[in-house]
Design a protein around this nucleic acid. Structure first.
Lengths: 255, 255
DNA sequence: CAAATAGTGTCTATCAGACACTATCGA
DNA sequence: TCGATAGTGTCTGATAGACACTATTTG
């Protein structure tokens, strides 16, 4: 395949063959477990970084869309299915599909010592789901607290990617309804607040948060079911509403 | 070069050679001219899409960082220099450097009919600068109103990329101080408000906007210079302040 | 003077945050 | 009964938006 491309930006016309590179997708799959923000990681079985923890991912295949590749890798690693669809709740969709969005692309020349690899990172937000057992269809992947992962040395530039993913998630909670993606199909307001507190490392006031969420049109829809926790008054269950943007936003305390 | 990678997600170990692809950077360079949001475009001189308008861009070179490639292309197309640095104003930096940030990556298999090309798009925000004359170091690039470009048929999937870039810019004006990047080193509050109005297609109330901007700590710094326009009271000139985030944000009217 | 633009004062409705209070459960 | 959690009432300070008003220029 000898495709030639006139190089731009030069008064003297040159023809160059564009450098070919490998393209991979890497996944930052976040969830909340035991009041900690956790990410999905796999242990690398081969060099380089053999034995280190890494974000799940793999190479984009010939003729495969980037988004498709991300969905495929997610399924291969977790056995779970994902979706780029923003909608939920509407028309009783009880889908457990994990929300995905493109995060950022990383292409520093030496980020993979073997060869030039361009990594298109995706961010996924998952409810606290049990992973299919290792040894089955999926490779052994595990949830690990982000704080711990950022102390251990992740493979490649995955620490940076993970940080960027967490920051994106935290930012999106401010002005979108994506927090509900961390929750099961039905959830209590306390569970939703816990998502905010874990991702933001905050302690939002319980009463104000409940009122706030109830007043954002389309964020949550009350069901007529309740759950009883350890103690206290039973909490009403809600499901995600049709709204995507949070208006007005829930702002983190800055500075 | 026969690099092999164990394919993940399969119980039977396979080795595959990752597909190699060309990687390009494409630039959405936005500015405001004559009260219209404009983007930088070039006319394609070769097939495919010969004669069509396209976003400036080019292939990433061997050993070249993605960000470097974006800076290089920007310089080749406009003769101007860019920066990923968020800071401005502080310590009297009178840099005219155009702000850049990564936008999104586009990799649909058939987006380039010649071969698989992964395009890493960058968003650049520029003040209304004259472009160096064509025939010089830079190729002939021109500013065209975005509204017009989205009616004409841009090459490749560049209409989509342009739309995404505009949406990103509009969103960022809400909660960052990037609007000042559309302005010259010193500017009036009216000029800054015009940036918002053009990008958002809004008509913000003049008095409230001025107060708002003045009250956001670190957004703008008053100078002791004034400018006289056609008629009316002379307007004070400001320069960009050290703040990056806008707190509280300036929210668009939604719904 | 009028017209135009810059900038401030002021009022109202809304909202965030603090915190008290009520509601409803288990033990 | 107490302790715990869910949810509401209420007050205060800050803010957005509407709009009137003042300030300073050109013609």
């Amino acid at each position: 395949m000898s495709i030639r491309q006139k190089q731009r930006g030069s008064t003297i016309s040159k023809t160059v063959i564009p450098t070919q590179m490998a393209v991979a997708v890497d996944l930052v799959v976040l969830t909340v477990r035991e009041n900690k923000l956790c990410a999905l990681v796999v242990e690398r079985g081969i060099e380089p970084y053999k034995g280190r923890l890494a974000l799940p991912g793999g190479f984009v295949r010939d003729g495969e869309d980037l988004d498709q590749a991300a969905l495929r890798e997610l399924h291969e690693e977790t056995g779970l299915s994902g979706t780029f669809d923003l909608d939920r709740a509407a028309s009783g969709k009880r889908t457990n599909a994990i929300y995905l969005e493109q995060l950022r692309t990383y292409g520093t020349p030496k980020r993979d010592p073997r060869q030039r690899v361009i990594a298109v990172a995706y961010l996924a937000l998952a409810p606290n789901l049990p992973l299919p057992k290792a040894g089955g269809d999926a490779q052994e992947a595990s949830w690990e607290p982000v704080s711990k992962l950022l102390e251990t040395r992740l493979a490649f530039d995955h620490a940076r990617i993970l940080e960027d993913g967490c920051e994106r998630a935290a930012a999106k909670l401010e002005y979108t309804t994506l927090a509900t993606r961390f929750c099961a199909p039905t959830f209590t307001i306390s569970e939703l607040r816990s998502v905010y507190d874990v991702v933001w490392n905050s302690k939002l006031e319980q009463g104000n948060f409940a009122r706030k969420v109830a007043n954002v049109p389309g964020m949550v829809i009350a069901t007529d079911a309740f759950v009883q926790s350890e103690a206290g008054r039973p909490a009403r269950l809600y499901r995600a509403g049709p709204a995507h943007v949070l208006h007005p936003p829930i702002l983190r305390a800055h500075e």
